[in-house]
Amino acid sequence: MEIYKFEAKDYKSDQYVRWCPGCGDHAVLNCVHKAMAELGTPPHEIAVISGIGCSSRLPYYMNSYGFHTIHGRGAAIATGVKTANPALQVWLMTGDGDCLAIGGNHFIHAVRRNIDLNIVLFNNKIYGLTKGQYSPTTDKGVVTKSSPYGTVEEPFIPAELTLGARGNFFARAIDVDLKNTTEILAAAARHKGTSVVEALVNCVIFNDGIHKQITDKENRADRTIFLRHGEKMRFGKENEKGIVLNGLKLKAVTIGQDGYTLDDVLVHDAYEPDITLHLMLSRMKGDMPVALGIIRNVAAPTYDAAVEEQIAEVQAKNPIRTLHDLLMKGEVWEVK
């Protein structure tokens, strides 16, 4: 029998995509379709859940099962879907406001439980659907409609939050890099447990160019580093730069300068259970390149499987399968 090979179009719905022209979400949606085709899970075995916000419209553009829910609760609803039916491939599409403000509690607890969800966190550092208020990832001091004199609060760094909540998979992608984003999304789906992919997306209307410093072609090579497991941490237009450990800190160096050789450049180990280096890599900014790619990818038992296993263990020891048998086994007396 010939096995049908799914294509990206098999995962697309017939709905007109209503995001603004130039919005970064379009690109990520295409990458999701491509990643799903690569994974080859039939659309009817996929559930795409979302909360509220621009990015949370995504389920309507899928030809899978989809549920566009309420603000902030996507992680909890997706948890219910996956726990009830672990055979489904479950995705959560969410944004920086939905996931880290109103839904922060559900997000950290989903990560802590390590339930097998693929969370795509669209981070444009702004509330788009409500037209331009600051979000929990908006940089301090930024002027928005609800912070006319600039914000006075520190933002979350999604990677810190994920690792702090004991997350086992964290990756960062940019909307303009379709190839790598597709690859990251597929890897996130293959990972058993909660995987968090922070997709840096542009909001063309309310926060245009927010990631420009790192996403523009001319800057990208020098201001970002794409991490791959088992490979040296190198970056730059000529791949001439690298990340080294300097005491307890990371340092960006030029290979061959200041006495640094290629041997000094760190090798990325995404599988390392200790979070220390992953945390340092995920926090790089300013003079250091922003880390992209899969920063952490550690195997660990999942919640949904553990729930099933516990039931199987109890059932192996206890033959009762009906309410009637259960009640008759308890304290009963007979009236004749």
Partner: peptide
């Protein structure tokens, strides 16, 4: 659990009902 019941405690009241709604969508008596 011998009857296959999945009765789970979540992080708050809202997560309690939200997981139930997810489970209902997925085909359980939630």
């Amino acid at each position: 659990k011998e009857l296959g019941v999945k009765a789970l405690q979540f992080e708050d009241e809202i997560a309690g009902i939200s997981t139930a709604i997810g489970a209902s969508f997925a085909g359980s008596l939630a």
